[in-house]
Amino acid sequence: MDWSYILLSALTLASIYGLLAIGISITWSSVGMVNMAYGLTFAVAGYGAWGVAELMVDVDPIITGVAVVAAGIGTGALAGVLVCLMTFIPIHDKPNFPVRGLIATLALSLMGTQILLWIFGPRVKTLPPVFGEWQAEFGAIVLTADKAGALVSSILLLAVTLTWLKSSRRGLEIRAMMMNPHGAAIVGIGVRRTGIYVMALTGALAGLAAVLLCQTYFVSPFSGLTPMIKGVSVALCGGLGSVSGALIAAAILGLNESLTSAYLGGQYVLITQFALIIIILLIRPRGIAGMLDKAREA
C-alpha cells in the first residue's frame, strides 16, 4: 500500500465530501434549516444527468461530458429551488421553524425518493464517464480520469462558490443572513429571495457531487442517502455553518476513509468515521470550527 495512492484517494474523497458538506453547512447557517432533502436533490441531479446522457447518443464524448455535468448542476439547482419553495417558504416565519423545517425536508425526501422509484423503477442507472478514459502517471502516482476530473472540477466549483460568496453582492447578502437574519431584513435583504438563491447554489453543489460520485457508484432513487449522511456528518464534524470547518473536516474524514479502506477494509469505513466524529464532537461539541465563529446559535 503506497502513500501516494492513499493521499490521492483521500484528496478526491475530501473534495467530494467538501462539496456536500459545504452545501449543507451554508443552507443551515443562512436559511436556518437542516436540509434533509439534500439526498433527494442529489438523486434528482443524478437522474437529470442520466437523462441528458441518454439523449446524447453519437455525440462527441467531450460535449457529452460537459452536457452531463451541466445537466447535473442544473437539475440539482432546480431541485434545490423546489425544496426551498416547498419547505422553506411556507414555514420560515412560523413558530418552531428549525424542527419543523427538518421534518418537512425529511417528509419531502420520503415523498421524492418514492416518486423517483415510481417513475424510474428500482433499477440502477449508470452515467457515462464524463472525463474520458485516460490516465496520467507522475512517477509512482497514477491519476485516473475520473479521479482527476473529480478533483479538478470540485475544487474549481468550490473555489468559484467561495469567491462568489466572498466578493459578490449576493454573497454578501447570504453571509449577512448567516450572521443575523433580523438585521438582514432591516438592511433590506429579502429573506425569501435569498433563501431561494442559497438553495439553488447548494443544489448546484449537490448536482456536481452527484455527477462526480456517480462515476464510481450508480444512480438510483436511494443513491442520495449515503452521500447525504456523509455530507451531514462532515458538516457536523466541521461545525454546522462554518465553511472553513467543513473543509478541514472533509480533509480529515477523507483521509480517514482512505486509510481505513486501505488497512482495515471497506466495511469498517462508517464505523471508524463515526467513532472519529463522536470523539471530535465530544471534545468540541460545536465541531472543529464551532468555536471559531459563532455564526448562528442552534
Binding site: R169, E173, R175, A176, M179, N180, G183
Partner: peptide, 14 residues
C-alpha cells in the same frame, strides 16, 4: 443588529 462575522467594510457595503 450587526452581523458579527463581517468586517466593517463589508458591513458598510451591506
Amino acid at each position: 443588529e450587526i452581523f458579527t462575522g463581517l468586517t466593517v467594510e463589508e458591513h458598510l457595503d451591506s
